Simulated scan of single mutants.
Amino acid sequence: MMDHPYPIEEHDARRMCGDPQALAYEWIKGYAANLSARAEDDTYNRRGGITAEELIETAMTHLPTEDDSNRWGDYLIRGGTFEGESTDPVFWDKLAAFLDIEIPQTDRGNFFSCSC
């Protein structure tokens, strides 16, 4: 389970006030919903949709850790849904804003794959 950078109970208020972290999280939730809709239409997908938390947690496995041990990240696989799919570059900008961290371009890779 991922840790939110602020108490989750504050999310709606932060979003209504235009807080950049909350707005970034809303974008990530929308991206996850779009991907989920596509995944749920895939006959060969047996794992269901995708949540914002799953996107964030998977992306974080591709970012270096302090001891540089996190260089082989996880991938999201939903049957053949993500064949040829690339991570939207805006996702990395929104993730950086949500977590209030810098994410170098070299660490902004793709974490989608197909089961082919």
Results as ranks from 00 to 15, higher is better:
Met1Glu: 02
His4Glu: 04
His4Val: 06
Pro5Ala: 13
Pro5Leu: 13
Tyr6Glu: 03
Pro7Asp: 04
Pro7Glu: 05
Glu9Gly: 01
Glu9Gln: 05
Glu10Ala: 02
Glu10Lys: 05
Glu10Met: 02
His11Thr: 01
Asp12Tyr: 02
Ala13Tyr: 00
Ala13Leu: 01
Ala13Met: 01
Arg14Asp: 07
Arg14Thr: 07
Arg14Val: 06
Arg15Leu: 10
Cys17Glu: 04
Gly18Tyr: 00
Gly18Pro: 00
Pro20Val: 14
Pro20Gly: 13
Gln21Cys: 04
Ala22Asn: 00
Leu23Trp: 04
Leu23Thr: 07
Leu23Ser: 06
Leu23Glu: 14
Ala24Thr: 05
Ala24His: 07
Tyr25Glu: 11
Glu26Leu: 07
Ile28Glu: 06
Ile28Arg: 08
Lys29Leu: 02
Gly30Gln: 04
Gly30Lys: 08
Gly30Pro: 00
Tyr31Thr: 05
Tyr31Glu: 12
Ala32Thr: 09
Ala32Glu: 02
Ala33Lys: 08
Asn34Ala: 10
Leu35Thr: 02
Ser36Val: 12
Ser36Ile: 12
Ala37Arg: 09
Glu40Phe: 07
Glu40Lys: 11
Glu40Gly: 09
Thr43His: 07
Tyr44Met: 07
Asn45Ile: 02
Asn45Met: 02
Asn45Thr: 01
Asn45Glu: 01
Arg46His: 15
Arg46Asp: 13
Arg46Thr: 13
Arg47Phe: 05
Gly48Thr: 03
Thr51Trp: 09
Glu53Ser: 09
Glu53Gln: 10
Glu54Val: 10
Glu54Thr: 13
Glu54Asn: 08
Leu55Thr: 00
Ile56Lys: 12
Ile56Ser: 11
Ile56Pro: 11
Glu57Ser: 11
Met60Ser: 11
His62Gly: 14
His62Arg: 09
His62Asn: 10
Leu63Asp: 14
Leu63Gly: 14
Pro64Glu: 12
Pro64Cys: 11
Thr65Met: 15
Glu66Trp: 14
Glu66Leu: 14
Asp68Cys: 09
Asp68Tyr: 10
Ser69Trp: 15
Asn70Lys: 12
Asn70Tyr: 14
Asn70Val: 12
Asn70Glu: 15
Arg71Phe: 11
Arg71Thr: 10
Trp72Tyr: 15
Asp74Val: 04
Asp74Asn: 12
Tyr75His: 10
Ile77Asp: 12
Ile77Met: 11
Arg78Phe: 11
Phe82Leu: 15
Gly84Val: 03
Gly84Leu: 03
Gly84Cys: 05
Gly84Met: 04
Glu85Arg: 13
Ser86Pro: 00
Asp88Ser: 07
Asp88Arg: 01
Asp88Cys: 04
Asp88Ile: 01
Pro89Lys: 06
Pro89Gly: 08
Val90Thr: 12
Phe91Cys: 12
Asp93Met: 02
Asp93Ser: 06
Leu95Ile: 06
Leu95Ala: 06
Ala96Ser: 12
Ala96Phe: 07
Ala97His: 04
Ala97Met: 09
Ala97Trp: 08
Phe98Val: 00
Asp100Phe: 01
Asp100Ser: 03
Ile101Ala: 02
Ile101Arg: 05
Glu102Gln: 07
Glu102Trp: 04
Ile103Asp: 07
Ile103Ser: 11
Pro104Met: 06
Pro104His: 08
Gln105Leu: 14
Asp107Phe: 05
Asp107Arg: 03
Arg108Met: 01
Gly109Ser: 08
Gly109Tyr: 06
Phe111Ala: 03
Ser113Met: 15
Ser113Leu: 14
Cys114Gln: 09
Cys114Asn: 13
Ser115His: 05
Cys116Pro: 03
Cys116Tyr: 06
Cys116Asp: 10
